[in-house]
Write a protein that binds this DNA or RNA. Structure first.
Lengths: 337, 337
DNA sequence: TTGAAAGCGTTACCAC
DNA sequence: GTGGTAACGCTTTCAA
């Protein structure tokens, strides 16, 4: 602790003066692998702590990589997104990266603005969790030597890294889960968001059901949320020929659906109604729900992202698909027999 | 689109050369309020888009403020935390700030490391949502002209801005809610985290109960989570003289507690058991829970943080208390007429 | 081992 | 309105 308390940031210069050495010496003290004699080193360190000096990484980033990784994300409060951000930031930090979060709307325009920010701050890499950026901007990022990683987004986009889960598998499995449980009339609850992942789960579910000759009513009541799931239930059970088995394209939808089915229509799960979700958010395991669903291998996915970010030389334009794993709980009847 | 695709970031220099002007002209084109003639402006803009130029904010931050605001947070996946980060980042972004997230453990040591990072990146301000940083480091931040904002942390810490909710009020109200509902034996479910906010709610609840001559059994089964709430219920209902009214210091605890009370001990809420929570997370409104709780005025709080961050001259060392608002739902019996 | 000097990409200040 | 130059704080040659 010392009296010398400047009202703006301390520079290496000041430390050098106080320690009676050159700025070079100061710099060397703080870059490992540089040669400084023990005495100077000590003098520098002492002056530094007295002054409260901290190396300016912004200035350092002027010459080398910035070590900044940008996470572009919408709907952060959604459990699945919160977990993605959590895991990703943890692992990236462990790899000495700094996390910059851009909380955006998922409209293309907002995502574009986010990417531009990314460029402004010379981020080493950008990870897009929501929305679909315009291809031209991705190219600009790549041209500037920045990595672009798209998670659960559209298809491969020129040179960007791409990872997603096997939505087709989920759609297919969901159908068979319900089919094997003996459900006769099926429902598909989806959102109006219309993202590629959701659409794919939907498409395959419908396709397989059609092939099996099972009729499916489709409902999209709003964005991906508990409220939309609720609303979907109200609409679907207001009709005659209500389904006895439903695939909700997301856990959040499933929980809203299940709750209003039980509390407003007095249906019993899984006796009267079987429900399958997707994401395996924590709430799905809660005793009020015990939702059968699919879990995304978030850890593996995050590991892959880190590898991509760390190794710029890694072959780009690759699409890597991860297998969601079915999580059996109690919202689907065990298959007869 | 152009052939000139460098593999590293484009500088103003390059743009200047291509446009046939000086770098000053380029700089002026991108700082508003600077005077450039329309023709040069156009030439610059054209060259810039062709090259994919983006102003380097890192370099800009060398002279002025960095516009970076750092959020230090633990337990990001927790609904209340996720919402805080979401709201805060939204509002700060709207004020042209860039959000840097440091996902940390809440141990003092990790928080300290986070603050040092904050310094390294010349953040204009640091907002601490979890853990308690050492006072000496806060001083260093302040000395370096950085704002420090502590949310729901300990008391005022030398010069840092401080905001929190009125936990005493919540503890008191929680008691009266249960008391008026006619509960005879009370329970207090808390976490082993032992943060200042939790402790305060706890303390006042016990104090008021003691004054009213009502006995309270206290249980802390683990960290602040659904699982801990569950475990608390198992322990408390394993005993004789189980409570018929419980204050859970957090919604997450409340939901775990409620679920195992109902599903494992066949208790009915609110007939056999009244429950009060705190936070008003989204899940509290779900039909399976309808939890009576207190909501933190997150919007107001975030607005205040933004004001603090934007106006460095604002009187420091102030503690601002926000009033949580009681949210009546169905987990507490209406008080007997 | 050390210090001087150049360079990183900006912007602010000066002359013109 | 425009271009040159200094300065921001750092790291990295290069001599000594």
């Amino acid at each position: 602790m010392d009296a010398a308390k400047p009202k703006s940031f301390v520079s290496a210069q000041m430390v050098a003066e106080r320690a009676g050495v050159s700025r070079s010496a100061v710099s060397r003290t703080f870059t490992d692998g540089a040669s400084v004699s023990e005495p100077t080193r000590r003098k520098v360190l002492e002056a530094a702590t007295a002054l409260g000096y901290h190396v300016n990484h912004l200035a350092r980033g002027l010459r080398e990589r910035s070590n900044i990784v940008c996470l572009v994300v919408a709907d952060m409060t959604t459990p699945i997104r919160a977990r993605m951000v959590d895991i990703l930031s943890r692992k990236l930090q462990a790899a000495d990266k700094i996390i910059m979060v851009i909380n955006t709307e998922s409209q293309t325009e907002s995502v574009a603005a986010a990417l531009r920010q990314t460029l402004n701050y010379r981020a080493d890499a950008t990870v897009v969790l929501s929305g679909t950026p315009p291809a031209s901007l991705i190219e600009t990022c790549l041209a500037n030597g920045q990595q672009v990683v798209l998670i659960n987004r559209d298809d491969r986009l020129s040179g960007s890294h791409n990872l997603g889960v096997d939505n087709a598998m989920a759609g297919r499995e969901a159908f068979f889960l319900l089919h094997r449980a003996g459900c006769k009339r099926l429902g598909l609850v989806t959102s109006t968001a219309g993202t590629a992942s959701l659409l794919e789960r939907e498409r395959v579910f419908l396709e397989v059901a059609a092939k099996a000759g099972v009729e499916v009513s489709v409902i999209a009541a709003g964005p991906t949320s508990y409220a939309s799931g609720s609303e979907a239930a109200r609409r679907i059970f207001g009709r005659s020929r209500a389904p006895d088995g439903v695939f909700c394209v997301t856990d959040l939808l499933a929980m809203g659906f299940m709750d209003t089915a039980r509390f407003e229509f007095d249906l019993h799960v899984p006796e009267d109604l079987c429900i399958v979700g997707f994401d395996d958010i924590e709430e799905a395991a809660w005793q009020s729900y015990r939702l059968t669903t699919f879990s995304q291998p978030l850890d593996e996915m995050a590991d892959h992202v880190v590898a991509l970010v760390l190794d710029p030389g890694m072959a780009g334009a690759e699409r890597r698909i991860f297998e969601p794993v079915p999580v059996w709980r109690k919202s689907v009847r065990p298959s007869a027999g």
